[in-house]
Design a protein around this nucleic acid. Sequence first.
DNA 1: CTTGACCCCGTACCCTACTACAGGGTCTAT
DNA 2: ATAGACCCTGTAGTAGGGTACGGGGTCAAG
Lengths: 147, 147
Amino acid sequence: MNTYRIGELASALSCSVETLRYYEREGLLTATGRSSNGYRFYNEDAVRQLKFILRAKAMGFSLEDIRELLAIRVDPKAASCGAVRDITEHKLQWVEHKIAELQRFRDALQRMVNACCGGDVPAEHCSILLALDDQHPIPGNEEHSRD
Amino acid sequence: MNTYRIGELASALSCSVETLRYYEREGLLTATGRSSNGYRFYNEDAVRQLKFILRAKAMGFSLEDIRELLAIRVDPKAASCGAVRDITEHKLQWVEHKIAELQRFRDALQRMVNACCGGDVPAEHCSILLALDDQHPIPGNEEHSRD
DNA sequence: CTTGACCCCGTACCCTACTACAGGGTCTAT
DNA sequence: ATAGACCCTGTAGTAGGGTACGGGGTCAAG
């Protein structure tokens, strides 16, 4: 079975050597072993595990989430399929919450952009500044004003 | 004109005293002055400025953005309305970019949740773990698989 | 005159996911 | 034997937006 040194693994999967050492410190990816000179080496199982980590990251999982998923992956008989789905659903809810928050930001910003003349005129009466001062709430924004 | 001590301002606008001192260090909100005992005090202008800051934060602006907006707010004749709209549009684009990213996360997570039996069975054949291992790509996810 | 609620300053710490650097060892080619 | 590429460890720094703490001063009530 062929093995990889840390730099080879890093360039193969497009991450940095420092990241791999960091993942080791964090307990996400331990090297398969050490050569007599102390160099880390990785086998195909480690490559697959790193792919798992990177793919999970690309899905939006945090390293903490990934730590849990890896624990299940290593010993899948000890965990239920439901546990895996719980982690995923929990993340999904968090992502949906974040999306909703950003959509509120987007709508507020969009209303401000729409209301602003945006011209090369002095900003003295700029509707965006007025809206942030709440002197002149922008229509559609009333529910956020104090009474 | 009535003035407020830092704790009064903090409780009036529901932020912490530490936050106000932090904003002062960051140049966002300087106290109106200091009493003879060294205590900060704030007048109504400062209250309005803090409201501006908090409202801008609620819109998703970063403290760095707010710093720029405040500079314009202080001297609106020196800046154009277009400059204000540029900041806002820039933020809007950033927010839209973030939303799109999170929506990709959400879709990937949703596909995984849908595909998972989620039962109290061992996770050995869990479709989520398989998908993250890319042994068993979930339909709709092919564009992310390596070839 | 002491207690408790305020306030001051400066510094350190939180989180996440890295990245950088210092100071050293190892291996390969020339 | 020496350059250059690679590897090791340990520690510190980054961004953003604060929070916490230690050690002290101030002020009003009892």
